[in-house]
């Protein structure tokens, strides 16, 4: 049987990708940020996940205004890194898990989540930067990501985005779907985006460390309560683009404790300001044996 063993949370700033791709990770500006992911890379080497269910948002890359899905699940075999205007990131193609993805789609739609199924999608920094942070740059001798990835895109660009609670409930349904899949698979679920940032207007550059750290506290200890926070609080306290944090609630909702199991173990926690315009938060939670 497939098992969700852990959830991972991380910001996904484009400048982090650029810093990696341009070899700047040891520059004084970037060094403290990348040092914050040293533990995570080692941890992933030990964990060896088979599949990552990766919740992210598209940033007007694969989805224009022609079609804006609230929730889109990727059931394709392969996804190419997108050209976001600066050329595609020099990272490997992403390999999907069509059978598991189709299984999840079927289960979750039958649980009344109105997913869009996607078979063709270039993936932007929202998906590739977390992969780089958690797995490092794949060596030329073995140029591929170390696991399969199911991309799950959430609309956080055009308001209204799904509510925190809708995301949290969706996480529960995803858990049920994954854990009813026949094959033995070590599955992680990642929530990406955020933390506080605003990329627009005279208020650009807003950062709210206190709110962000309280978000991390509550995400660990009382996610169902945290899921009740309305959109407007994200905007007011964490900036207009801080709304991306609702995606973390999908990953959190898929953890065992939400379904009555034991509380997860906090394996790692990290916070750093800034990466470009953004506060970077990072958390790893491991499910514990029942």
């Amino acid at each position: 049987m497939a098992k969700i063993t852990a959830s991972v949370y991380t910001s996904h700033v484009p400048a982090i990708g650029a810093a990696i791709d341009l070899g700047k990770t040891q520059e004084p500006y970037w060094q403290p940020l990348f040092a914050g992911y040293d533990f995570s890379k080692e941890w992933e080497k030990a964990q060896k996940p088979d599949v990552v269910f990766l919740v992210f948002n598209d940033h007007a890359t694969a989805f224009s205004l022609d079609m804006i899905p609230t929730f889109a699940i990727g059931t394709a075999a392969e996804y190419q890194p997108a050209d976001e205007g600066w050329g595609p990131r020099p990272v490997p193609a992403v390999h999907g898990h069509p059978a598991l993805a189709a299984h999840i789609a079927q289960s979750v739609i039958q649980d009344d989540f109105d997913l869009t199924i996607v078979n063709k999608m270039d993936v932007d920094h929202g998906l590739t930067v977390p992969l780089s942070l958690m797995f490092g740059q794949p060596p030329q001798s073995d140029y591929r990501w170390p696991c399969k990835v199911i991309p799950f895109a959430v609309n956080v660009v055009q308001y209204p985005v799904p509510s925190g609670n809708r995301c949290f409930q969706l996480g529960k349904a995803i858990r049920k779907a994954i854990e009813s899949f026949d094959e033995d698979l070590n599955v992680q679920i990642w929530g990406t985006g955020g933390m506080s940032h605003q990329l627009q207007g005279p208020r650009a550059g807003l950062i709210n460390k206190d709110w962000d750290n309280r978000f991390l506290d509550r995400l660990i200890a009382e996610p169902a309560e945290l899921a009740k926070v309305p959109h407007i609080e994200y905007v007011r306290e964490a900036g207009s683009e801080g709304i991306e944090l609702v995606m973390w609630l999908i990953a959190r909702g898929a953890m065992a404790d939400v379904a009555g199991g034991p509380a997860p173990k906090v394996v790692y926690r990290f916070f750093h300001v800034p990466a470009s315009n953004t506060a970077v938060g990072h958390l790893i939670l491991e499910n514990q044996p029942a």
């Binding site: 506080s196 208020r203 807003l206 950062i207 306290e237 300001v273 800034p274």
Partner: peptide, 15 residues
């Protein structure tokens, strides 16, 4: 420099 200094404060910028 504002960003390196911790970014823009939310104080006075909520409403």
């Amino acid at each position: 420099n504002m960003m390196v200094g911790g970014g823009r404060s939310p104080e006075g910028n909520r409403f």
